[in-house]
Simulated assay, not measured.
Amino acid sequence: MKIFSEKRIVPASAIDENGHVNNIAYLQWCIDVAEKHWFTKAPEAFKNSHFWVVLEHTISYKNPSFEGEELLVETWVTAAKGVKSEREYRITRMSDQKILVTAKTLWCFVEIESQRPARITEEISTLFM
């Protein structure tokens, strides 16, 4: 398992009317870290010719988080077959190591020019798994 991660500080803009991080913010952070992982690791030829679209999200909210807290957002690819790839996420509060969120996303690999699903190559699978 090749984990990609980034730390982030919870901004005031992520806080909802209940005083903690809005559920949508966690989902956005998962998508953001997945995109950063792709753009950090993928060869230029693939970044310029392909992109990913979301087919399905599954997310479990385990604990709340609050403004100013430092979080670790982690992601890794668990499967890549045909045109689909499954990616998992974990968001942890740094101060007490509590897991706040676990999530999975099913992605589809798409060729830019044709706008059609494209088979995930062994080169891409090897880079991410």
Rank of each mutant, 00 (worst) to 15 (best):
F4P: 04
S5N: 14
E6Y: 03
E6L: 11
K7V: 03
K7C: 04
I9W: 08
V10A: 13
V10T: 09
P11N: 14
A12T: 13
A12H: 12
A12L: 14
S13D: 14
A14W: 15
I15Y: 07
D16K: 01
D16E: 06
E17M: 14
Y26R: 09
Y26F: 15
Y26L: 09
Q28T: 15
Q28C: 08
W29L: 05
W29D: 06
W29Y: 11
W29S: 11
I31N: 15
I31A: 15
D32Q: 14
V33T: 15
V33K: 10
A34W: 15
E35K: 13
H37N: 15
H37M: 14
H37R: 11
W38D: 10
K41S: 06
K41H: 10
A42K: 03
P43K: 11
P43G: 07
P43A: 10
P43V: 06
E44V: 12
E44D: 10
E44F: 06
F46M: 09
F46L: 11
F46Y: 14
N48A: 11
N48W: 01
N48S: 06
S49D: 08
S49P: 01
H50S: 05
W52S: 07
W52G: 07
W52D: 05
V54K: 02
V54R: 02
V54S: 07
E56T: 07
E56Y: 04
H57Q: 05
T58K: 09
T58N: 12
Y61T: 03
K62F: 06
P64V: 06
S65T: 09
F66M: 07
F66D: 05
E67G: 03
E67I: 10
E69F: 12
E70W: 05
L72F: 02
L72K: 11
L72D: 14
V73Q: 08
E74T: 13
T75S: 12
W76F: 09
V77T: 04
T78F: 00
T78C: 00
T78V: 09
A80D: 00
A80T: 00
A80P: 00
G82E: 03
V83L: 02
K84T: 12
K84A: 02
S85E: 04
R87P: 08
Y89L: 12
Y89A: 05
Y89M: 11
R90I: 08
I91G: 00
M94V: 14
S95I: 04
S95G: 01
S95H: 03
D96G: 01
I99S: 03
I99T: 10
L100W: 01
L100K: 04
V101M: 01
V101F: 05
V101G: 05
V101Q: 01
T102P: 02
K104N: 10
T105I: 09
L106F: 00
C108V: 13
F109W: 13
I112R: 09
S114W: 00
R116T: 04
P117R: 05
A118G: 01
I120R: 02
E123T: 09
E123I: 06
I124M: 03
L127M: 11
L127D: 01
F128G: 01
F128Q: 03
F128I: 02
M129E: 06
